[in-house]
Each structure stands twice: as structure tokens, then as C-alpha cells.
Amino acid sequence: MTAFFQLLFQGIALGCIYALVALGFTVVYRASKVINFAQGSLLLVGAYLVSVLATGLNLPFVLAVIAAIALLAAGCAIFQMMVLQRVLGQPVFVLVMITIGLSIVIDAAIPAIFGGNARILGDPWGASAVHVGGVTFNWVRIWTVLCTALILALYFVFDRFSRYGLAMRATAADEEAALAVGVPVRRVYALTWAIAGGVAVVGGLFLAGFPGSVNPSLGNVSLRAFPAIILGGLDSPPGAVVGGITIGIVEVMASGYAPGWLGSDFSAVAPYVVMILVLLCRPYGLFGTRPVERV
């Protein structure tokens, strides 16, 4: 039973990272219908930014994180304004391909600049942990859960009560109608990218925490977060959270309990199996909106 609770805690912590990645995806998707294939690469950039600011420039860790969030959010917004806004109105496919191009550039640039070896993150937690009834709670995981909860709460408050949150929801509901009533749609797009970038820093830094490290393969996590966004529904931020945590638990449980005949490393594909089963029953995910079709 102790083993079960240990796995459950690890699953929730991993799920929180997936939820952050998925939130970055859905925010962009909801506004512009673009699946941002570069989200995983943004995570990678986020982790390296924090590492460089904290260990290279010796900033206090909290300051390094805040600075990294600001830098990456600004970078993403600039990329959106300089590049993606030039192809607004083109088929979505074109924008998706540009994000794929961006991820190829980042995934190659990071090892080219920093080398293939792992870096230290410079976080204050390391491997320290508290033990309660035989279950080990690593501080970095506890902070993962707390920070994710805080960020999600902030996001939902922003989305529900702020002027730009309303603009984001309006753009998601109907872009043309939003334009017609004066919503600054272009600025909303840039804002969604800024949010995606800011969230990516937090996801990346916790992904690189113990027992992980800052290394060029961190970006692969976005591929494992796809089941999470699909499970919840592409256009539903609450769905991203539920989907993310579910997939995190499924993955960790599969690593603990999957029988040997399923092959080694089955935990990596278990989320996809779950996703396909869910989609066959609910084609728009658990919380996704079913589009009304007109002929």
C-alpha cells in the first residue's frame, strides 16, 4: 500500500507538469486553432534559461525563475508578432508547420550552444525530502504540485475576471465576431503565446528538478503530453488539468504495475493507449466542445 501511495504522489506530480504543458497548448489552440508543436521546445528553453540565470549569473533562484518567465514570455510574444502574424488568414496547417520549424531550430540550437551534457538547475531543493509513513515526499515534487495549483488558479482568475481574459474567451468563441466588437485579436494571439512561454518555464524547471537534470531531451515531454490535451479536449483548460493529472498517474502506475509481457518501458505508451480508448468513446475528449456542423 505504501508503494501505491508513493506512485500516486509521483503520478500527481508528473501529472502537474503535464497539466502545465497542456495548458500552454490549449491556451494557444483555443485562440488560434494552432497546435503549437514547439511547446516542448519552449519547456527546454525555459529550463536552460533558469539554469543559466541561476548558476551562470548567480541570481537568487526565485529571481532567476521570474526573470526567465519574463524573458521567454516576451520572446514568444515577439515570435508570434514578427513571424506568425504575417501568415494570419492562411490555412492552419501553415502555422502548425511554422511551429514545427521553430521546434526543429530550438532542439538543434540548444545542444549546439550548451553541448549535449546535462547541466545543473541551481534549484534550492536538490534531493531533499520529507518522509511520512514510509512515503517519500521530495520537496521538488511538493513545490511542483503547489506551484502548478497556484499558476492554474491565477490563470483561471485571469481568464474569468480580467479584461484580456474576456477578450481571449471572445476570440475563442468567434474570431470574426470578436473583431467586430473591437477585441484586439492580434494582441490576444500575442498574449496567448506569452502565456504559453511563461507556463513553459515553470513546467521546464520542475521537469528538470530531481531526479532529472537540464538536458537536451527535456523537450520530448511535449510528445507525452499530447494524450493529456486530447483526453481533456483540445480547447478546454480545465480539461488540460484533469487530462494532465490523469495521464501522469496512468504513466507512473504503468511503470510500477505493468506486467513484463507488455514489454520494457510500457509506461511511455500507456498514456497513448488510454487516450485512444477514451477517444473511441468520446471523440472530442472529456471536456472538449463538440462543434456544431453546418452544411
Binding site: 513571424v83 504575417r86 501568415v87 501553415v94 508547420m97 511554422i98 514545427i100 520549424g101 521553430l102 521546434s103 526543429i104 531550430v105 530550438i106 532542439d107 538543434a108 540550437a109 545542444p111 549546439a112
Partner: peptide, 18 residues
Amino acid sequence: IDDISSIAYGLLIIVFFV
């Protein structure tokens, strides 16, 4: 050299579609 050609590849995709 692999990284440089990957970076150029990604940049070309972006520039091409823009």
C-alpha cells in the same frame, strides 16, 4: 555540423512558409 544543418533546415521551413 548536424546541429547547424538542423537549425538551417528549421529556419528554412519557417521562412518558406512565411
